[in-house]
Amino acid sequence: MSKEYYIGLMSGTSVDGIDAGIFDFSGPHPRVIDYYYQPYSLQIKQEIHNLCINHESVSLSDYGTLDTRLGLLYAEACLHLISEAGLNAKDIKAIGNHGQTLYHSPNAKHPFTIQSGDPNIISQKTGTITIADFRRRDIAAGGQGAPLVSAFHQAIFQTNQENRVIVNIGGIANLSILPKDTQAAILGFDTGPGNTLMDYWIAKHRGNAYDNNGEWAATGKMQSELLKRLKEDPYFSQPAPKSTGTEYFSPKWLTTILAKQTTAYLAQDVQHTLCQLTAETISEAIQAYAPKTEQVLLCGGGTHNKTLHLALASLLNMPIASTETQGVHPDQVEAMAFAWLAKRTLEGSTGNLPATTGAKQAVILGGIYQA
Rank of each mutant, 00 (worst) to 15 (best):
K93R: 14
Y37D: 05
I22R: 03
G64M: 06
S116T: 15
Y235G: 00
D190K: 01
I286G: 03
T255A: 00
Y200A: 10
A355C: 08
L254Q: 01
F189G: 10
G145D: 12
R137S: 11
T65N: 09
Y265R: 05
L258H: 01
A335K: 02
L341R: 01
T219Q: 13
Y289S: 11
S41P: 02
I22K: 01
Y369H: 14
L341M: 05
P39C: 00
A132K: 03
T357H: 08
N317G: 09
S123M: 07
S83V: 01
W253A: 03
G71Q: 08
T13P: 11
F25S: 02
G143I: 13
T263F: 00
G214Y: 05
Q276F: 02
C299D: 12
S224V: 06
S116K: 04
G171H: 06
A264S: 13
C78W: 00
G127K: 07
A259V: 04
V328T: 15
Q268I: 12
Y289F: 12
R229T: 12
P111D: 11
K180S: 14
Y265P: 02
T323D: 14
T191V: 12
L70W: 00
A85W: 03
F152I: 08
L316E: 04
Y40V: 09
N174V: 12
T128C: 15
K228G: 00
A288I: 12
S224T: 14
N163H: 13
G245V: 04
D233G: 01
R164K: 15
R31F: 02
T159M: 09
L51W: 03
C275I: 02
K221I: 13
W201N: 09
T307D: 06
R137E: 11
T113D: 10
P291C: 07
L9V: 09
R136A: 13
A217R: 03
H104S: 12
G86F: 00
N54G: 07
T126D: 08
L266T: 10
P119G: 08
N160C: 11
T325F: 12
M222E: 15
T130I: 04
N212T: 15
L42H: 04
I131G: 07
L66P: 05
Y103N: 15
R136L: 13
K125N: 07
N195M: 02
Q261M: 12
Q361F: 00
A359C: 07
A337M: 10
A89S: 15
I114E: 03
T113Y: 08
A141P: 11
N213M: 14
G145R: 06
Y235D: 02
L341H: 02
A359Y: 05
A108Q: 09
G27V: 04
Y40K: 07
K252C: 03
G145H: 08
A108L: 14
A288L: 14
C299P: 11
L226H: 10
I169Q: 05
S14F: 01
I286W: 00
T196D: 03
K231D: 03
A311H: 10
V165G: 10
I121E: 06
A279T: 03
L73I: 11
L298C: 11
G170A: 07
Y5V: 04
A146D: 07
V32D: 05
A267Y: 04
L315G: 00
